[in-house]
Simulated assay, not measured.
Amino acid sequence: MRKLLFIAAIHLILLSCKSDKKTEKEADVQMEAPTPQTVEINKTQAAFKDFDWSTIPLSKVDIGNFPYLSAPEGFIIRKEGIHEKAENGMTKYSDFNKLITYTGTNFFNAEGKKAELDFAMTDPNTEFKQYLFDQSMEQYLASIGAHLIFKGQIPREQIENLNKEDDKTVFNYIQGDPYNSSPVKHYALNHLNGKIIFQVWSNSARAEIGIVELKGFNQTIKPPTASEMKSDIDKIGKAILNINFDTDKATLKPDGEKLVAEIFTLLNENDSLKISIEGHTDSSGDAERNKQLSIDRANTVMYALAAKGIAIHRLQVKGFGASNPLLPNNSEESKAKNRRVELVKIH
């Protein structure tokens, strides 16, 4: 009997060991199971978002005329590159330009009338009084109802991302030197006379302020008629057209379709005329992408004309991207003129 009990106990121990081994094996299998793949999110991408002006109380304080501020006592707003007082109170002025403004979480484009003010001490031999300048500007802007929407260092990765398409973006559209240790201060003024952005920057040697009074872009380029295109082709061998497409696409906008209709009239009334449709872009974005975009847009025009009945053998297509600008790409007006399609007569 004792022998039987002993054998039964040994059998139970063996079963228990097998069960433990199975559990360990199952545990090993679970540990070896593949980990779900994670997708890395690009947190450094510079996000643009429309600014909510309803969060800024309306100000009715008298602020005078654009650019709405002057130099504190002991300082001057100087001419560009030299230590002389700017006669009109502005170092640079543009009818239409922009400041890329930061809110602490995202950027937005403040477009409109723009002034850039470079500050120096009246006496060039005097050390720049940064604290006095900063306090003067902070108190003045607060007194007219301007709200500080960001103060500090814009994250380096955000700045670098802005420059990915054009390495002059930050230099052209953010006031001061946001790369280095001096903080930037961005203000919004929701005034009875309009919406205004101030960007204030200073260091121990100088200071800068950028001001934009917001307004929509006023397109002053008028579409030419078929007879005007013919006149240009007869005089200089080509007609230069600013055909509007959807942003970064080759899709015609309604006013672009009207201009294509005028090209059709030109070709329909001059049946011996053959043209090269040549696309051009501004310098914004990747050069290779711009080249392809210019070809795609020229093709859009060609196929639209062919669909209207123009023989395809009378048409050819070329794309130059941003390689042949009419004007330097240093303002929105110039960029608008560089985004064009040229109709070049084929002899």
Rank of each mutant, 00 (worst) to 15 (best):
Y93T: 10
D166P: 13
A261I: 07
F6D: 13
G321I: 09
G89Q: 09
G237T: 01
K235F: 10
K308Y: 03
T38P: 00
T169N: 10
H186R: 05
I295S: 08
E342W: 02
A306C: 02
I221R: 03
G319W: 05
D177K: 09
L14Q: 04
G237H: 01
R206Y: 13
A120P: 09
I312N: 08
G210M: 03
E32P: 03
P34Q: 11
G104V: 11
R78L: 14
H347G: 13
E24Y: 09
G81T: 12
T281P: 10
E157C: 10
N203R: 02
N268I: 02
T225H: 02
R206D: 14
S59H: 05
L326T: 11
H280L: 07
N88M: 15
R156M: 11
P124E: 11
Q158K: 15
D118Y: 08
I7D: 06
N180I: 15
E26Q: 07
F6A: 13
H280E: 07
I41Y: 10
Q175H: 10
D248G: 06
D282F: 05
H313A: 09
I159F: 08
G319S: 02
D234Y: 01
S227Q: 08
I310Y: 01
K238Q: 06
G64R: 04
G112W: 03
I243T: 10
Q139K: 08
D282Q: 03
I346L: 14
K253I: 04
T247G: 07
N299H: 09
E342H: 01
S323C: 11
A146E: 03
H191P: 06
V200K: 02
I174V: 13
S334D: 12
M31A: 11
A110P: 00
K185H: 15
I277H: 06
Q153A: 14
D62F: 04
T300F: 09
R78K: 15
L141G: 00
A250K: 07
L214N: 07
S272D: 15
I197T: 08
Q153I: 11
F128K: 01
Q153L: 14
E228V: 01
N106Q: 09
K151M: 10
I144S: 00
A298N: 02
A287R: 14
N97R: 14
D62Y: 05
T23A: 13
V212Q: 02
N268P: 05
I275K: 01
A115D: 02
M121E: 08
S231D: 04
